[in-house]
Structure formats: structure tokens, C-alpha cells
Simulated scan of single mutants.
Amino acid sequence: MTRIILSLMVLMASLNAAEIYATFSIEAKKSANLAFYSSGIVNKVFVDVSSRVKKGQKLVELQNDDLKASLQIAKASLKDAEVTLKYAKKDYERQLLIKDLIDEAKFDKYLLTYEKAKVAIVRAEANLAYQQSLLDRTLIKAPFDGVIFEKSVEVGDVVSGMMLRTVFKIQSQIDRKLILEFDQKYWKKVRIGNSVKYTVNGDKKVYTGKISKVYPYANSENRKIKAEVKVKNFIVGLFGDGYILVPDDK
């Protein structure tokens, strides 16, 4: 009984709605072209076309043994600076307790050593961060959970800073969006939340969805306005058409 009532409500809403024709193409909700911004020779490729990846997962790596060594040296330097600071602070605090009993110049030496140790920590931390950033440039990681749909790199390829190119293309795994286009004369009628019924080319099934975004401009060349509908599982690049249901002015 409940289903019958709901069906009747949907039917009545449709009868009281005007239909605005729209065409659409299907895009991934998220997509990105990934490229190195460092030069080098490709050392490892961890994924292939159709690989499903998690955010932060390594995709490809340049030869970077020298940078890894530099990073280890930077970590050791920071550790050394931390030890120096630890004992410089102890010396300073001991002298602070007897400050009034010792020569002022002697106390200042302990204070200077302590302050220099703190500066050395800042310098060591900055160097570590810099070495880490250089190493990170030799890696490409997935920016979000997704699937690789194009790959143009192999082990041994040379990546040049003068000719940086896309090596992977990634898109969200199942989340998609319809990019609707409708006549600009309906700009006052179409709103977020409007229902859409549509068919995808090659599929006779009629789908339904709701507008999640309306673009705030009209294309001056074709006099169309765009809107989005969130969907799932369709192949990116497909197209179709349908109708946006809006309240009937009558």
C-alpha cells in the first residue's frame, strides 16, 4: 500500500511539472592528470591501467637513492642537534640556579650555547623538510581513491624537467556526474534539487536523479547552461539526453 501511495505521489508530481529537454555527457566525479615535476629516470612503476588505488598509494618512482641517503643524513643531523640542545639546556638551567654567584660573562656563554643549540634545531628541521620535499618529487602518489585509466610511462623512461608530461590519468572508481546542458531561457526555472529523468545512449532504461549543481553562467557560443547530476557506475564518456522536471507555471 505504501509503495502504491508513493508511486501515485510521484505520478502527480510529474503531472504538475514542466519538462525541460537537456543533453548530457558523463564524467568522473574526480579526475586528474598526474605528472612529475622533477627530472630523472623511471625506476619503478607500481600500477597499470585499470589498477584500483587508494589515496597516498605509490604509483611510480624515479631513481632516488642519492636523495634517500641525503634524507638519512638530514635525520641524523637533526638527532645530533636534539642531543646537543638537551645537554646545552641542562647546563644553562644549572647555571641559572647560581647566576648570582658566578661571573656574568661565564653565564652568558652558557646562554649563548643554549640559544645556538635551539637555532641548530630549527636549521636541522628545515633541512630535513627540504630533503624530504626533494625525495617526494621523485614519487607520484594517488591524490584520491580511484582507478588508473591511462598510463604512458615505463621503467627506464627519462623524465625531463624541460618536457614534463602526464604519466598517469586517474578517475574516481564509481562516482560519476552527468554534465547537463539546457537552453539558457530556462535559467530562472532550473534549480538544485530538480528531478531529472534520462536515458544513456545504448541503454533503453529510464533513470532518475536530482540536480546537485547549476553552473552560474551561460555559454555565449551555444546559449546553453550546464548543471550536474550525481550518478554511479556509468562509463566515463558516454552521453544521452533527458528532461529536467520543474514546477509548471500553469
Rank of each mutant, 00 (worst) to 15 (best):
N201V: 15
S31T: 12
K86A: 04
K109F: 13
S195E: 08
K58G: 11
Q72Y: 13
I26R: 03
D48S: 03
L164P: 11
D66E: 06
K79C: 00
Y92W: 10
G237Y: 07
S50P: 00
Y198A: 05
S25M: 04
Q171K: 15
D108F: 14
S160D: 11
L139D: 06
K29S: 06
A18L: 04
E115F: 01
Y198P: 09
R3N: 10
I235W: 04
K58V: 03
V60S: 09
A120M: 01
R137K: 15
Q171L: 14
A17L: 06
N201K: 13
D66S: 12
L139V: 07
T84C: 04
K116S: 13
E104R: 12
D175R: 09
L59S: 11
A142P: 08
G209A: 08
K90P: 00
I211N: 09
S7N: 15
E221D: 14
K29G: 05
L101A: 14
K230C: 02
F168N: 09
R94G: 02
A124S: 14
V10Q: 15
G240M: 07
N201F: 15
E93H: 08
V147P: 06
P143M: 08
S172A: 14
I4Q: 13
D157C: 12
V60D: 08
K79L: 05
K44A: 00
Q184L: 10
A120G: 01
V231M: 15
L97A: 07
Y92I: 08
S39F: 02
L85P: 02
K188S: 09
E125T: 10
L85M: 05
S25E: 14
V42R: 02
E19H: 12
I26T: 04
K29H: 04
S31M: 13
I211H: 10
A35L: 11
Q57F: 02
K116L: 14
K210Y: 15
I170R: 06
V60C: 05
N233R: 14
R165I: 05
A142R: 03
R165H: 09
S77L: 03
K226P: 01
E228L: 03
T199N: 09
L85K: 08
Y207D: 05
L134M: 11
E125I: 06
N16T: 13
N64H: 10
K54C: 00
A105F: 00
S7K: 15
N64W: 03
M12V: 06
D65L: 07
R223K: 08
T84D: 13
E125F: 10
I235G: 05
V83E: 15
T113V: 04
F182K: 01
